[in-house]
Design a protein around this nucleic acid. Structure first.
Length: 111
DNA sequence: GCCGTGACTACAT
DNA sequence: GATGTAGCCACGG
């Protein structure tokens, strides 16, 4: 199991209506301080259709695509549909940040 | 094995 | 807030 696969696995665990930061995903995948690798892993995923990449945003609660770009709008739309409120282009992390329990992680992630 | 890259982050202006 | 800067690290060439 490669690092990329673990990142993708963790990402697929994020429930609808929640978001997680790149750094958070990296941590959960056992790769502290590898936030930048997360972006690459998501982009490299073999089956983007089943990957909730839109639930991954940066530590400021903002979408990391250029404002008004196609992927930016798509991500924002998907989050909105799932009930995630976006004010002035940013998500209230205190309200929507994913807080995985230990059971979920230990049962789902092969280390 | 070295080097450039990036959908990042934390901290300082 | 809006920049700038310096770490960060797995991956591909």
């Amino acid at each position: 199991m490669t690092s990329n696969e673990r990142i993708q696995l963790v990402t697929r665990l994020i429930p609808a209506g929640c978001v997680a930061s790149y750094g958070q995903i990296a941590d959960l995948a056992g790769l502290p301080n590898a936030a930048r690798q997360v972006s690459k892993a998501l982009k490299a995923d073999k089956d983007p259709e089943t990957l909730p990449w839109h639930r991954v945003i940066n530590a400021q609660g903002r979408i990391s695509f250029p404002k008004d770009s196609a992927p930016y709008r798509l991500q924002m739309e998907r989050l909105r549909v799932e009930g995630v409120i976006i004010n002035n282009g940013k998500v209230d992390l205190r309200q929507f940040r994913w807080q995985p329990d230990m059971a979920t992680l230990t049962l789902s992630i092969p280390f």
